[in-house]
Design a protein around this nucleic acid. Sequence first.
DNA 1: TGGCCGATATGCT
DNA 2: GCATATCGGCCAA
Length: 201
Amino acid sequence: MGTSEMSSPRAATSSRLADADFLARPTLEVARSLVGCTLLRGRCLGRIVETEAYTDDAASHYVMRPRTARALIGSTHGLVYVFASYGVHLCLNFTTDALAPGAVLLRALEPLEGLELMRRRRHVEQAADLCRGPGCLAQALGITRALSGASVLSAFSLMLPEAPVDVIASPRVGITRARDLPWRFSLAGSRHVSRPRPSGS
DNA sequence: TGGCCGATATGCT
DNA sequence: GCATATCGGCCAA
């Protein structure tokens, strides 16, 4: 795994870039189709392997934190929404759905390029530990609260997968409300998905 | 202004 | 698998 950052062909550059319409679609659709996309921020590139959808359900910040989740108000879409979880860990979200409140939490990436920079930011060595979990992912990419409210497509390059992706749906992680909704989406068989691993992979 | 809760991460058993 | 550190956001008083 150690040579991937030098030798990997930039398969991503030949892929289609996501446009504004991609994030304007219904939140569940966006959350599912973000899995398998590659995300570039500066020199750091990774494949999205795990997301979660939040709309106007009881666990959503649209309901829980209407004051700070401004990016979720007013049917905006395509904006970055960053918040601190448990005071310390930043979580990176993209707002979605041109017609309703919604956001997708990015929970895990498979690191592809820029691993040394990620290691420096994360203070861990193992590639598998760099972007596994929302707080880890945000730290590895150098996300700050200042990015909240920015346009997703200006802050990142988002590239669509070249081949169909096998996605597993399961309940969302770490929430106390609306736990029954299977709105966590992960790449089948990926070792880079966070804990707890969805059953069946 | 204090207290409670949480879309987490980590380390130890 | 489980405990717990840690602190921002929110609301009650």
